[in-house]
Amino acid sequence: MTEVSASPVDVVSQQDVPPRRMSAKKRFLNALWQDKKAMVGVVVLTVFVLAAIFAPLITPYDPNDMEYDFMAAPSLAHPLGTDDLGRDLLSRIIQGAQISIFVGVSTVVLSLIAGLTLGILAGYFGGWLDNVIMRYIDLQWAFPNILIAVYLVAVFGTGLANIIAALALAYIDDFARVARGMVLSIKEEQYVAAARTVGVSDFRIMWRHILPNAAAPIIVQATVSVSYAILGEATLSFLGLGVEADTPTWGLMLSEGRSFISRAWWIGVFPGLAIMLVVLSINFVGDALRDFLDVRETQDKA
């Protein structure tokens, strides 16, 4: 570090600048590579997402064909067996990945946008706005999320769009709470005062100064919520409030398999395993993301 020319003010401060590290993307991939759990999560998720995307191409049988032996145990012809109506379980699980993952992700995206907006506005502006928003959130919080979703679907009817909307609305309170809590602590930081002193607008303070610093717990909440949304969709299907009856979804399959658990365990177990694998993988990746996003922690490890 000798190429630096001396400034008139002082030289000391110029000598201990550490060399620049890798780019953020590179560091993230590096961190991911070293975190075995996260790697497993990424691999499993990739497999499921690809399966969902290419479902029509890779299902070995038509998911709704009922022409095979019913309740056949797993075999070479039917790796995961067949269900009570003689449909191939592997094909149905692959087809079901589409619905489950789509519902999980889109629910969380909607819920995240709405919940963050409410939580950040409430926390940042405080006062009556905070009161109005948070009393509503409290009200919603008093009911179990799934009950709200069940109620909404019962009122507005089943169907993919309604299920996503109902689940998204049901999970808003989680995001709003987490976001508001983060905003309340971050808005007292000196860099927010400094930004106001410089003349940064409220919107830009929320967007550039508060949101990025609140990201870590919100991302964790989002990953947890994707799993909850997948489970939520499964629950609605299980209760008969899901997508149409002939659409294979994991929750529906799980609920059907329940009746046959002693005679044909595979009907319920494999959809359940699929749900578990996806939820677990999302959580692994979420943990890795949280660790990476914690700047101070990353610095210590470096």
């Binding site: 000196q190 860099y191 400094a194 930004a195 550039r208 990025p212």
Partner: peptide, 24 residues
């Protein structure tokens, strides 16, 4: 008028650790 005023009056804060946004 606050914005014009802010161009003329600025501040240096106490804590060099919390006065800079860690993500910028």
């Amino acid at each position: 008028e606050v914005k014009a005023y802010r161009r003329r009056v600025q501040a240096v804060f106490q804590d060099p650790y919390s006065s800079l946004n860690p993500r910028m």
